[in-house]
Design a binder for these strands. Structure first.
Lengths: 206, 206
DNA sequence: ATCAACCGGAATGTCGTCGTCCACTTGTGG
DNA sequence: CCACAAGTGGACGACGACATTCCGGTTGAT
């Protein structure tokens, strides 16, 4: 691979991440190309179609999640604070938009992404461990679960443009409110809870 | 106005409300027409452009909000439960999408909508009263305010298609979590709160 | 019975985006 | 320094999704 080609590839990946974060998976290819300072032709030679590009983004994304979780877990004084910090970080719309993009991807795209799946699973397991610890510590309600944390993280995972302005401006406020709602102290007195029969069971996004 | 024309008008209004609720303000006019069992021509004769249609929807919407609030307030045993019930009702994405549609409207559209503004103000005042009462009762944290309640209500006010599936399926779970986070018991121990210096001050949607 | 009001939806025009293609430029090995 | 394979950019044709117009046919009211 020629040196300039390599450089362009890097620029494209970077630009794609940025553009998709702010406009979603459907962002015009030309926008991405321009942001990378490159012609559409170049973009299409590297990634034959949009899905190829998104898939490449996915690798990055899931790795960064796993890393962030580990970091939060080891730095925080206890499981619950670690969880809180992580959710606040990961729930930022800019990051979430990429998750949304990945979720829109047709399944075929993932056929040969074994590593992706592996990383994802490991990450989920660690998250689950953290949740259990927080609950064991008596800091977190027992009637919310790992799935809820994941949901929370992905709550605002859509194009920032389609988020109500209140949220786009201060996502952390709402995430914080929900985290407060997950604290042990906030457990319902009677039938006043988050309104469900336990866990959210749908498939998650990330 | 001829009887059949009148009938069609009603059908259009009803269909527009339904379609906009599920597809946002930008929903194809033809879709609305078809849902109403009417040709696009008819739709355009009644409402010269999309904004006219949205404005008409707005009247309905704000009235229904005001009514619902009154209902909740008088039926609930106390201010906090009334608030909770109202938010759960009003925060449903189907309803919220119309609010989003209204918010997208260019300002000129509202020039001659004095009644709209009046109803809106009255509604906001009552909501504020309810919040104060809930706080006075010691059921609601003092560091969240009316604006937050409104934000909450409009949190999921966007086209359901662009909501993460988790949310679209169970909006009440997340609303419930946030409401729990607003309860007095969930107040932060120290710097652990919803992450802000008080109220959200941006302009609200409804 | 008459006719103005009303209707449906085909037709037209616009817009934004995709993905291809090729004439031109540039890095690199000899 | 050269020759040429590798790489580049962006004009271009095709497309699909929509808004809006227009008019021949239909229907309610008198």
């Amino acid at each position: 691979m020629r040196a300039d080609a390599r450089r362009n590839l890097d620029k494209i990946v970077e630009a794609a991440a940025a553009v998709m974060a702010e406009r979603g998976a459907g962002a015009p290819m030309e926008l991405i190309a321009r942001r990378a300072g490159v012609g559409v032709g170049t973009l299409y030679r590297r990634f034959p179609d949009r899905n190829a590009l998104i898939a490449a983004m996915g690798q990055h994304y899931v790795h960064s999640l796993a890393e962030a979780l580990d970091r939060a877990a080891e730095r925080a004084p206890d499981a619950w604070s670690g969880l809180r910090e992580f959710v606040l970080w990961a729930g930022d719309p800019g990051r979430g938009a990429l998750a949304a993009a990945l979720a829109e991807l047709p399944d075929e795209t993932f056929l040969n992404m074994a590593e992706f799946a592996r990383t994802r699973r490991r990450w989920l397991e660690r998250l689950d461990g953290l949740v259990r610890r927080a609950q064991a510590d008596g800091r977190m309600r027992p009637d919310v679960g790992t799935e809820d944390v994941v949901s929370l993280m992905n709550l605002f995972a859509c194009h920032p443009d389609s988020l109500p302005p209140h949220v786009a401006e201060r996502p952390a406020r709402f995430l914080g409110l929900m985290l407060d709602g997950m604290k042990a102290e906030a457990a319902e007195a009677a039938g006043d809870g988050p309104g469900g029969t336990g866990m959210v069971t749908g498939s998650s996004r990330v």
